[in-house]
Computed example of a mutant assay.
Amino acid sequence: MPITLTDDIFRTNLIVIAILIAVVLFTFSRTKRIDLFPIPVTQELKGLGILTVVFAHFAYMLVTNADFLFPLSIIAGVGVDLFLFMSGYGLTVGMLKKPLPLMDFYKRRAIKIFIPFWVVTILIFAANAIFLNIHYPVPYMLQSLIGWFPTARGFDDVNSPFWYITWMMMFYILFPIVFSVKKPWLSALILAVIATLIGVYNPLELGDNWLHRLHTVAFSLGMVFAWILFETKDKENKFVTAFKKFRDESTFMSYVVILLMLVLVVYMSLHTTANHWPLLTSILGQGYFVDQLTSIVIMFAFIVIFILKKFDNKFLAIYGIYSFEVYLIHWPLISRYDIYFDILPAWAAVTAWIITFIVVSWLLQKITTPLGAWIDNRLAK
């Protein structure tokens, strides 16, 4: 059940923000990267994305005070879009470099995603039954194991953030079917149209469809971004060359752009809903289109900042490396097995959980990575 805090919320928020800023600042190092959008940058963005989701789940699901962790908690939608964007980007880059047959693509994705997902889901079902005497109907457990989560009920579903698993699977299933090496932009458009139609009309009668319709285009935007940035050894990408030249040679202007993007992030983060944009809402017709648009604007502002910055951040990178595992385990732990909020001040409890998520995710990856490799080897024989 939700926790009622007796702590001074304003003081708690300041302490958590101060700790987070200190950790981020002390884990900066001058970058050695040359590429425009290398893996370290994508990992940092994934780390940022999962942290926005975690903070929002603390604030809006675990506790009864929505002011908790403000303003860290207000852009979870941006985090979800970052994950979808990175998925579309990564899959497109991979297919442009080395197209995979349909079944090979599915096998690789299934091993990477479903092995840790299955391990966590089975452990949650078992732990809830053994320690909490919470039992789920067999049909519910079976549909969960195949990734079908039509609802996102915080304390009723086995893991309410798993609504994202169902939505992500839709993109992963359709991606290799519609993908064209010659026209990735067209593939992206097709997926965006399909996702928008499903989000708007809800033909599958998903119980919490409002979540899906807020995130219909980010995956496709990642595909388009990969197509725009793609280059080969024998063919120069003039856009990439110009952007890298601006980043590397125009130091002052780079910092000006970063500052402007930060201002945009702050302003848009405080004006994310359709209520803040009545004119835009009247043009687009539906408030959730406006909500999605504001999230996309913030997401791209972050992407520009991370591309232009001349420093790497170890903290965000670590959270990015374990972002999928943190996503899988964080809500079951804090919603059903919390001990920190009972014995520690709220700011210390949040800090303890942020550390715990990484430790548990590291252990989970130590189990699932060799397991996935073993299964891959068996399937290859």
Rank of each mutant, 00 (worst) to 15 (best):
N202A: 14
I146L: 10
V181W: 06
Y136M: 08
L174N: 04
P161C: 08
I146K: 09
S180G: 04
I130L: 14
P203L: 05
V193H: 01
I130G: 07
P137H: 09
I130Q: 09
I198Q: 01
D156Q: 12
I165C: 03
P161Y: 05
I134A: 12
I177V: 15
L189V: 09
L186T: 10
A152Y: 04
F179W: 02
W163M: 11
F175S: 07
I134L: 15
V181H: 15
I173S: 05
R153G: 09
G147P: 08
L145I: 06
T151D: 15
P161F: 05
Q143A: 06
P161W: 02
V193W: 00
L191V: 14
T166R: 03
F155K: 07
Y164Q: 12
N202I: 09
Q143C: 08
W167T: 01
A192E: 00
F162C: 09
F149A: 10
V138K: 08
P176W: 01
T196M: 00
A152E: 07
T151K: 14
L145A: 12
K182W: 00
V181R: 15
I173W: 02
P184N: 13
P203K: 10
F162T: 07
P203V: 05
L189F: 10
I134E: 14
N133P: 04
I130Y: 13
N159D: 07
P139V: 12
M141H: 06
L189I: 13
F155Q: 11
P150W: 06
V178I: 05
Y164F: 15
Y136I: 11
A192M: 05
L186H: 05
S180F: 01
M170K: 11
A188Q: 09
Y201C: 07
P139E: 11
I146R: 08
L186S: 06
M169R: 04
A129Q: 15
F149N: 08
W148V: 05
I165A: 02
L142C: 11
P184G: 12
V178W: 02
F155N: 13
P203Y: 03
T166Q: 06
L186N: 04
M169V: 08
M169S: 13
S144D: 11
W163K: 10
W163A: 08
L142S: 11
L145R: 08
A195N: 01
D156E: 12
S160R: 03
K183H: 12
G147C: 08
G147A: 06
P184W: 05
L189C: 07
T196Q: 01
A129W: 10
A195W: 00
L132P: 10
A188N: 09
S180R: 10
R153L: 15
I177N: 03
S144N: 14
S180D: 05
T151R: 14
D157P: 09
I198R: 00
A152Q: 12
W167Y: 11
F155G: 14
D157H: 13
Q143I: 12
M170N: 12
P150R: 13
V158R: 02
T151G: 14
G147W: 01
M170Q: 14
I190V: 14
L174I: 07
